[in-house]
Amino acid sequence: MDTPTNWRKSSFSGSTNECVEIADLADGGRAVRDSKRPDDGFFRFTAGEWSAFISGVKAGEFDQ
């Protein structure tokens, strides 16, 4: 499994490193890692899983 190289984090994170980073995968999925511990690995999500997650965020499913 290749490690993505195109990591990016939200512009909302400012200058802190306390956020997650995402990377696009060749198959349309996404990889997610902790920006404070990038060498600890990452989670891989399919395009369908990522789409469902984004839809949930937009619908407020994770709001507290």
Score class of each variant (00 low, 15 high):
A47M: 04
W50R: 12
F42N: 06
W7E: 03
D63R: 13
G29E: 01
D63S: 14
A52K: 13
A59C: 08
A26E: 14
F12T: 01
G60D: 08
D63M: 13
F42A: 04
D24S: 13
F43G: 09
N17C: 10
A31F: 00
E21H: 02
S55A: 12
E21Q: 09
F45V: 03
T16I: 08
V20Q: 03
P4H: 08
I54S: 05
S35E: 06
L25I: 06
F42H: 15
R30E: 07
T16W: 10
G28N: 10
F53K: 08
D34H: 02
F53M: 02
F53N: 03
K36G: 01
G56L: 03
G29T: 08
I22D: 01
S15G: 12
D40K: 11
S11H: 06
D27K: 08
I22P: 01
R8A: 08
S51H: 13
G56C: 02
S35K: 02
W50I: 02
C19N: 13
D39Q: 15
I22R: 01
R44Y: 04
R37P: 00
V20C: 03
A26T: 15
R44D: 05
T16R: 11
R37Y: 09
S13L: 10
S51K: 15
S13R: 09
F45W: 09
D34W: 02
T5N: 11
W50T: 05
G29R: 07
N17V: 10
E61S: 14
S13N: 14
D39Y: 12
I54W: 05
V20G: 03
T46R: 10
S11P: 02
V57D: 06
D24T: 13
S15T: 12
E49P: 08
K58D: 03
V20T: 10
T3F: 05
K36L: 11
R33N: 04
D40F: 09
P4R: 12
D39F: 08
T3W: 09
R33H: 05
A23T: 01
G29W: 02
N6A: 07
G14E: 05
D40M: 11
G56I: 02
T16K: 10
F43C: 05
M1N: 13
R30N: 12
N6S: 11
N17K: 09
R37E: 09
G29P: 06
R33M: 06
N6T: 07
G29M: 03
N6G: 04
F62T: 06
D39G: 12
P38G: 04
